Amino acid sequence: MPTTFSRMLALSLLTVVLGGCGAPPELEQQSAGRSTPTATAVPPATASPTPPTGLPLPPPTGLPSTPGSGAVAVACRNGPSGEQVLRLVRGSAGVLPGDTGVRVRSAPLCTDDWQYTVLAVSGYEDLTVVSQGRPGALRLVTAGTDVCTIEVRTAAPTGIRTLACDGTGGLPGA
C-alpha cells in the first residue's frame, strides 16, 4: 500500500504545482473578449559598464590648462596666414577657380600642425577649410560646408575636431 499512497501523494503534489502555472488572471480577463495574443513586457536590459569596442569615443570636454595642448584651437602664431590657405584651395587642390571672389572670414586657428579656416565665397555659403602641415607645405585635408569627415574625426587634434564637427572649440580672444 505504500506505493499506492506514494503515487497518490505525488499525483496530488503534481496537480497543485501545475495548477499554479496557468495564465495570470489579468491576461485571462483581457484575452477573454479577444482572439489576438497580448504582448508581454520585457525587462529592460542592463547597461554595460564599458563602451562597445570599435566605436569612436566623443572628444573630451573642458578647456586644457595650457593653450596649444591640442584641446582647443588658437590663432596661429607661426602661420599659415589666411592668404596661404587661399592659395592652397585655389592652387593644386583646385577647390576654387582663380576668378571666384573669396576672402578670409576667419583667420586660421591652429592646433599642433592642423589648421581650421573659414572663407567667404561671393554668392555661396562660407567655405570651411581644414589643412595640415607647415605654412610652406600645407596639405588640404578637406574643404566644404561640412568638414566633419572620417579623417578629421579620427586624426585631427581635439580643438580642430571640435570646430569642424561641433562648430565650437576656438579659444575666445586668443
Rank of each mutant, 00 (worst) to 15 (best):
L127P: 07
G144M: 04
D113I: 07
V141L: 06
E151N: 14
Y116M: 04
S131E: 00
R161W: 05
Y116W: 10
E125S: 13
P97W: 01
D112G: 10
I150C: 00
T162W: 03
V152S: 03
A155S: 15
T145E: 14
Q132E: 13
V102I: 04
S106Q: 13
G98N: 13
T162N: 06
L163M: 15
A164I: 08
R161H: 11
C148H: 03
P108Y: 00
A143K: 11
A137S: 15
R134P: 08
V141P: 01
G98V: 12
V152G: 09
A143G: 14
T111R: 01
W114G: 01
D112E: 15
R153G: 06
T117R: 12
P97S: 12
T158C: 04
G144Q: 10
D146E: 06
L163C: 09
D99L: 08
G159M: 09
E151L: 06
D99N: 14
V129T: 03
T100C: 00
V129H: 01
R153L: 14
T142P: 07
D112N: 15
A156T: 14
I150D: 14
C110L: 06
S131Q: 09
G123I: 06
R153A: 09
I150H: 07
T100Q: 10
L138G: 14
L163V: 05
D126W: 00
A137E: 10
D146V: 12
T117K: 08
V130Q: 03
A164R: 00
A155Q: 14
T117W: 15
V104G: 11
A120G: 08
V129N: 00
T117G: 11
V141Q: 02
V147G: 07
A164H: 07
Y124P: 01
R139I: 08
T111M: 01
I160L: 09
L140S: 07
S122V: 07
T154C: 02
L109G: 01
A143N: 11
Q115Y: 02
L138D: 05
D112S: 13
Y124W: 07
V129P: 04
A143Q: 08
G133F: 00
A164T: 05
A156K: 14
L119D: 11
D112L: 15
V118G: 10
L119Y: 03
R134D: 11
L119K: 00
T154M: 12
T100V: 12
R134K: 14
D126R: 00
T149C: 10
R105H: 15
Q132T: 05
G98S: 13
T142A: 05
T142D: 00
A164Y: 02
Y124D: 09
C148N: 09
P157Q: 03
G159V: 05
C148L: 10
V130P: 12
C148S: 06
G136P: 00
G136A: 08
Y116H: 11
W114T: 04
L127I: 10
L138Y: 02
V152Y: 03
W114Q: 04
Q132G: 01
L140N: 08
A156V: 09
V102C: 12
T111G: 12
R153H: 12
S131T: 09
V121S: 08
D112Y: 15
R105P: 07
R153F: 02
S122C: 01
V102P: 10
R139A: 11
P108R: 13
E125Q: 13
D113C: 04
